[in-house]
Structures are given as C-alpha cells and as structure tokens.
C-alpha cells in the first residue's frame, strides 16, 4: 500500500519529466524517423540548451528570452552538424559525435560566463526563490497555474501544432521526401543538402528547448545532463511507436506518441527505482531496452516471416 501511494505521488513528477523530454523526443523523431539520420548532436545540444538558458537567467534575463536564446544556440549546433555532414561530406553519425564533443567544452565555458574565479563550470543552480523560472518541479503537485505541468502541456501542444503545419507545407514536404528517398527528392529538384541541414537545425532547436525547460524544471543545468539523451529520445520514440503506431495514423498523433513514450519511460523509471534498482544501473537498463526494441522488427522479418509456399514463384 505504501509502495502504491508513493508511486502515485511520483506520477506528477514523471509527467513533468516526460513532457520536457517529450519535446526532445519530437526533435529525435524529426531526424531519426523523418530524415532517417541518427543525430548524436542531441547529447550536446540538450546540455547547451540548459547551459545557455541557465546562464541567461542567472544574469537576470527574462526567462522567455533565456529560452529563446537557448533554442537559437541549439539551432546553431544543428547547423554545425548539418554543414559537417553536407558541406564536408562527413557521415551523419560522425558529424553528430564531433559536434557533441565540441559542445562539451562550449557548455563548460558558457556556464562560467561572468565568473571571474574560473573559466569553466560544470553545474549552474537555478532556484525558484531567487530566479524567475517558467517551470519548476517544486510546484509539480500543486493545484495552481504555477504547476509546471500546465505550461509544459501547452508547449507540447503548440510545438506539435506548429510541426504539423510545417510538415504539410511545400518546404516541409520536401524535407519528408529527402528522408523517404533522396534520389527521388533530387530528381524533383529538391536540394537535399539544404533540407537535411534544415531538419538538423529544427531538431536541435527543439532539443535545446527541452534542455532549457529541464534546467529550470530540475533547478540546475549540468554539463552531463545530456549524456545518453539520444538513447532516451529513441526510447521515447520507439515506445510510442510500438504501443500506438496502429492507433495513431495522423502525423500530429505520431508526434504525440513520442511524448507519450517519454512519459511512459519516466513512469517505468520511477517504478523500477522504487522497486530498488540502483540509479547507477539506469543507463544500462535503458540501453538494453532500446536495443531490444530496435532489434524486434529486424528479428520479426528474419525469423517469423511466413515462408513463400514452394512453387509460389512458378505459379505467380
């Protein structure tokens, strides 16, 4: 009974984490599902979003402006990966890893801006008592408008609406065509280098947005906050897909399923932690789960496909 009660009490927190990471998962959806690129920049750009937002807020900026700046920083990171990939011909995965690594230094330095004592800083604390924050986990169980879930849910709805509109436009369609069949896209006059860069910019902007909200939500920005982010994002996308692919056929709902996937992920995490899992084992568990879910469609095709009846070809 106690267990159940404490689990229920943890639910709002899981929803908060799930919403914030859900925005990140939508960013992963854009690159992984639409552009067909596994973009590892996100591990860095998530932390960049957090770092830029946190430093702006501690300098006394309006949090909305701080979030906007963080988004722009994330977009710049996406631009770098995009140019490394297209203009320099580096494979997408490697281009992402390079940017991610470079961002580690950038993030350490960003968080030390204005600090005369040191040139780098690994964490930056935000406090709802001292700083004006858009979202804070402190109020996550409160029945009021400052409950972070309200604003986070609004953000999720707005972003999904915006992306739904965008991917229905001529430009958005050319982005989808690039991921679906680059040959066809180029034959139809689409500059696939440009669309890939655009996709990476939009995706990393979203990831930084998520990082900016997370830093406020959890009350600190750390240089490690993005470690393994791509795997969590993929987990969210895959959980959403496995559970809801058949039900959610509309594009907007597919994006929503990534957010739902993120929420489910955090509910499961809080559950296994409550059941006594060592938090240090979390990343191993997450990696395992994602590996298994990525392997399932492959195994299905290899081991469980119905064999063509003998003589099928001759009778066709």
């Amino acid at each position: 009974m106690d267990f159940l009660l404490s689990f229920l009490k943890s639910l709002p927190g899981s929803f908060g984490q799930g919403f914030a990471w859900g925005l990140m998962a939508i960013g992963v959806y854009i690159t992984y599902k639409i552009l067909d690129i596994a973009d590892l920049t996100v591990d860095g750009s998530l932390a960049t979003g957090g770092a830029v937002c946190a430093i702006c807020i501690t300098m006394g900026w309006n949090p909305w402006l701080a979030v906007l700046t963080a988004v722009l920083a994330g977009m710049a990171a996406g631009l770098v990966t995009g140019l490394l990939h297209t203009a320099c011909g580096i494979p997408a995965i490697l281009a992402g890893i390079l940017t991610q690594l470079a961002l580690y230094t950038v993030n350490l330095r960003v968080m030390a801006i204005g600090d005369e004592a040191s040139a780098t800083k690994a964490t930056l604390a935000l406090n709802p008592d001292r700083n004006f924050l858009l979202v804070s986990s402190r109020y996550v169980r409160e029945l009021s408008l400052r409950n972070p879930l309200v604003l986070l849910a609004i953000f999720v709805v707005l972003i999904i609406a915006l992306l739904y509109w965008f991917f229905g436009t001529e430009l958005g369609s050319s982005l989808r065509a690039t991921g679906a069949n680059g040959n066809m896209a180029r034959a139809q006059g689409i500059n696939t280098d440009m669309t890939k860069v655009l996709g990476l910019v939009v995706s990393n902007g979203l990831v930084a947005f998520s990082g900016a909200l997370l830093a406020q939500y959890q009350g600190s920005s750390t240089v490690d906050m993005g470690r393994g982010a791509i795997v969590i994002g993929l987990a969210a996308v895959i959980i959403g897909e496995v559970l809801l692919d058949k039900v959610f056929t509309n594009f907007a709902l597919k994006l929503l399923s990534a957010v739902i996937g993120a929420i489910i992920y955090y509910i499961v995490i809080s559950l296994v932690l409550r059941m006594g899992l060592d938090p240090n084992d979390l990343k191993l568990l997450t990696a395992l789960v994602v590996a298994i879910f990525l392997a399932i469609p492959n195994w299905k095709g290899r081991f469980f496909s119905k064999p063509v009846k003998r003589g099928g070809a001759a009778n066709a």
């Binding site: 001529e170 958005g172 369609s173 066809m184 689409i190």
Partner: peptide, 27 residues
C-alpha cells in the same frame, strides 16, 4: 522514383513543384 512512405498525391504534389522554390504554402 517515388517516396514509398508518402501518399500518391503527396508524391505528385512534390513533382508538380519540380524546379520551383519550395515555400511555406500548403504542400
């Protein structure tokens, strides 16, 4: 020559815009 994950009309609409710049108008 076609994008498998996109609809027939979406493929045609992409082709109808061959050689033109892609804007934020409806696809």
């Amino acid at each position: 020559g076609t994008a498998a994950t996109m609809q027939i009309e979406e493929n045609l609409a992409l082709a109808a815009r061959r050689g033109r710049s892609r804007t934020l108008r409806r696809g």
